[in-house]
Write a protein that binds this DNA or RNA. Structure first.
Lengths: 374, 374
DNA sequence: CTGAAAGCGCTTACAG
DNA sequence: CTGAAAGCGCTTACAG
């Protein structure tokens, strides 16, 4: 709206501005700016006057103008490439990020993208310089724009272990091995020796399996690959995960060969089952229910979960990723990068915890959270 | 960085700017601006040249500068006052909003606040003019700043039915009555006559109860208030909801009086139970399991859920709010308001759907989603 | 149809 | 310690 003075458009056309505060306080804009930004080089006496004027006029600095002048928007982007087969996403993640940013007066702007689209183009918040940094999560297999970003000096923190090779990115990953070993040890401690496992493919699956086998070896139990079913990562999506879990369970339990018929007491090829991905659990439970296999009587069960009330109610012993913590860590790492660009990239692994409930049949050690009434 | 020309700081110190594109194309900044904003009043020949220059330099307009000039940020705020006892929040809501905004090249910036804090102050994104509009959800009982916003011409859409009185806000609410009636009718149709209910307090509870009683009346069944337990809204929070659900279930089922002892076959005061809030479900299930009451044999069950895999796996018949739809609607309403301020506020109610599974014991009509393999 | 210039509301190097 | 002024990178009314 050039060529027209504020006064012509009417005094209260917008919001109170720096200029108006300066006038009321009888100082220059520069001084007001210094006061609201907490620069020390202002005489207490003047500072007082300014603060009073700010309060009186209920002045709030315009974040956009400030961003243009300082070249910092105070905003961080969160790119989520969905659907993602990676646990740990959800509202908790966002809450964790937000909690950290809020302390720094920063804001989170969202970019939920289709995984396909995310492959090709960076989010517009990045190209249009609306964010100071970026947290990326989801299945984007090292999109090329991501690598370029690293040189472009836009701080990035990657969620999950699809960290693009070649470039050093800061990342928050998940430790799949440790909880897998713990889960398996739990079952071993309860006396199980024939333990089945359903594991996802890819790098995660390798880690999960490594943990599983390490625990078995530790107990002197030979690994038996016929008891392990692999599910391809591509099947972990919403539409197909149920069927995949169902199929894998029937395979490991030898239900497929008997045409789904199983009579209690007949004995299963395994006495315990470890389901290493949350998306597979419903399908597995379906297979069990269909054949009237009860948990933990006929089969002990440990799964990866997402900490839902449903898991509690069902009494599932579950490996659980603390999503909020994941978000907090990612945000902290990004803030660190923001303060000191060129800082060495760091990778941090979150270790999920094993929440013991009834389904693994060994509930004495820790009491289940389900039964602890507040 | 005044008093210093870009050329002095090094050519590629930042990003390509409008000016540079104009120079390359041999036109003025104004013309480039017109082209990238799709104004028609540019000769095709010139337009071509500009477009070529834009491509060549990989130019992307700076959103911040544009926002300052146009007084529109292209950003919408989502204020979530947590913890909230209102169903419908979660990642789905955010995805719904985002999907709509993306089509308009707009972005979502988050403000997750403590419900207490939200009572007093508007989020900083609003006071600092970082957003063009606001979607607010959560328990903020008509915070006074919200009402002021209505006069301040900042478009607002309220989620849930805590719409502040006095001012007309656009809002997306939830229809509690219809699905409550449906749920009850379902149980009635299965022959149940003694039906218990656990309902939340407040306006929601009144609606829920109205639906419940309307269905009973429709079937000629007298309402019996001894079969209805009320849970105060303040108890629906994370820490206390489990205990509240547990207690309410024991009350309605008459378990409390018998010191928790119940032997199968003994007969319960009700043959079916309607749990009208998702947060109460785990506690209810706990109470049932503790007394070895099986569903649906001893007791038919219909609950409010959030569409989780756990509900599927447990076979719970559940009233489910489509969170994504809720988000989409809110975003659409806000965009509408943005296009035409002063438009009449509208309120839209989302009707949750009843997903029938095993727990209500009448599974013939619709097949459960749990058992439909893709 | 096109350009020169003012303006959006801040920050900050420079000169006092 | 304080102010006048340039600059951040755009848009747009105005004059041609």
């Amino acid at each position: 709206m050039p060529r027209r003075k504020r006064s012509e458009t009417g005094a209260s056309s917008g919001r109170v501005t720096l200029d108006e505060v300066a006038q009321l306080a009888g100082v220059s804009k520069a001084t007001v700016s210094r006061v609201i930004n907490g620069k020390s080089c202002v005489r207490p006496h003047v500072r007082e006057r300014v603060i009073k004027a700010v309060k009186k006029m209920n002045y709030h600095p315009n974040a956009v103008a400030r961003a243009l002048a300082t070249r910092r928007t105070g905003q961080v982007g969160l790119l989520l490439a969905l659907p993602s087969s990676m646990p740990g996403y959800g509202l908790g993640l966002i809450q964790g990020i937000e909690a950290v940013l809020r302390r720094e007066q920063m804001h989170l702007v969202l970019n939920v993208m289709d995984a396909q689209a995310a492959q090709w183009d960076p989010p517009s918040t990045v190209t249009q310089r609306q964010v100071d940094g970026l947290i990326v999560g989801g299945d984007l297999n090292g999109a090329s724009w991501l690598k370029e970003l690293a040189g472009d000096s836009l701080p990035v923190v990657v969620l999950g272990d699809e960290v693009p090779e070649g470039v050093q990115f800061s990342a928050v990953t998940i430790d799949w091995l440790t909880p897998s070993a713990q889960a398996t040890e739990r079952l071993l401690a309860a006396g199980h020796r024939r333990i089945g496992a359903i594991v996802p493919g890819g790098r995660w699956g390798d880690q999960v399996r490594a943990g599983f086998e390490r625990a078995l070896a530790g107990a002197g139990v030979a690994a038996d690959s016929s008891r392990v079913a692999r599910v391809d990562v591509s099947e972990l999506r919403n539409g197909t995960a149920h069927a995949a879990g169902y199929r894998a369970a029937r395979q490991v339990l030898g239900l497929a060969e008997r045409a789904g018929r199983w009579t209690p007491g007949e004995g299963l090829p395994v006495t315990a089952l470890y389901v290493a991905h949350e998306a597979l659990v419903p399908g597995v439970l379906h297979a069990l229910k269909e054949s009237s296999i009860s948990v933990p009587q006929d089969l002990a069960l440990v799964v990866w979960g997402h900490g839902s009330a449903g898991e509690q109610a069902m009494g599932l012993t579950a490996v659980t990723v603390n999503r909020e913590q994941m978000g907090r860590m990612a945000a902290l790492m990004l803030l660190d990068l923001l303060k000191d660009r060129g800082r060495q990239a760091v990778q941090l692994a979150i270790t999920p915890s094993l929440v013991v409930r009834e389904s693994c049949g060994t509930q004495r050690a820790e009491p289940s959270r389900v039964y602890s009434l507040a």
